[in-house]
Design a protein around this nucleic acid. Sequence first.
DNA 1: CTTCCTATGACAGGTTCTCGACAGCTTTGA
DNA 2: TCAAAGCTGTCGAGAACCTGTCATAGGAAG
Lengths: 220, 220
Amino acid sequence: MRILVVEDNAALADGISSALTRMEMAVDVVGDGTEADNILRTQEFNLVVMDLNLPGYDGLEILKRYRQNGGKAQVLILTARDTLNDRVKGLDLGADDYLTKPFDLVELEARVRALLRRQSGLKSPEIVIGELIFDSVARRVSMMGEPLDLPRREFCLLELLISRAGQVVSKEQIADSLANFDQDMSPNAVELYISRLRKRLAAADINIKTVRGLGYLLEK
Amino acid sequence: MRILVVEDNAALADGISSALTRMEMAVDVVGDGTEADNILRTQEFNLVVMDLNLPGYDGLEILKRYRQNGGKAQVLILTARDTLNDRVKGLDLGADDYLTKPFDLVELEARVRALLRRQSGLKSPEIVIGELIFDSVARRVSMMGEPLDLPRREFCLLELLISRAGQVVSKEQIADSLANFDQDMSPNAVELYISRLRKRLAAADINIKTVRGLGYLLEK
DNA sequence: CTTCCTATGACAGGTTCTCGACAGCTTTGA
DNA sequence: TCAAAGCTGTCGAGAACCTGTCATAGGAAG
């Protein structure tokens, strides 16, 4: 789990950082708003711990921009004790939680655990093959960054080949799998789908090999 | 949005209830643990505000049982005891947030908004997509600077698509979400709303893509 | 060279989606 | 209280797209 800590007070940043490291997190620390902005634009984190009180920069601004750019990480903000307004604003701007300074590191850990637990289970597993990214949960495929629209049958075929990558899959297996067992599919139809899929994947370096008399296989 | 308030102090319960009602929430109040247990078993809520300090009943127990029975609502706990332990325990038992008494109603409102937003998957109250600005808190949309009046169904549809931007949302999910689970909506009706929403958003560069056989998705 | 398997264009259904028309319902405003 | 305006959802015609058969051509194996 990657965590970004945005905190200008070096001593505090250090304490937070080591507490989180003890939890087996990968922690990055930045000390000012500009840096925070930059790193949030270019890298992905699971959680951001941010002090709202940064010198020469408004933490709320960073948060707002981060969310508007589609940032998805959980955000835990740190505020001084008596700034109710900041906390309220922070939550309204898309923070997930806050902690009032001074706080106990044990409590920080509990909050981080709660936030990360909440986040897990959101990401769907993706399979990357060369230029192709295949997401079976979201049922999306993209090729060289561009989303690729596949008709249902072709999507199922690709899914089957990927799940058995490196092994030969017989035409009969493909037919059964595509036809959902509720009807028959001729071997020729399978050949046709292979042909169509190959054409679509031609731009990426994906190779569906023919194994004469046996079937097809997707090379890894 | 349905909210359950579990609070034995009538005056406080009243204050909370009216604050939430002002936010256009449907609020139910119960005053003791047994009642809370019962209603949580039989009805669904989006959020539960629960005092841990109930006469003759441990709020943490209720919370624990609720989660064990698969309760999915966001839970905000209220605690007078300022012991770190209770708060940490509460979070570890599946509470989503806590507030220490005494608290400010403004802050309660912010927390409730944040929790409900979290539940819907939306992070920032103002989401900018091309020429469109979507404000989930104020429940307003504007397009190219002009406010855009959307009928309720279309607004809900847009909210759903935005909260799942980049993912396919099935017609069934849309139907369930729009119909609020209390009645059925035909797939055809969903198609119609998509059509209407597309027409309204045509001027902005918003693209609702059709994924044949699966549903729709809003491109990022 | 012959035979069988595979590749692919063309095409004819079939399915799914789009959206105008319309009628019932709800809200608004006087 | 009633009328007007607007929202909601059904129907259905037509468009768009998917699917699988046929037919033909290309290649591999013996």
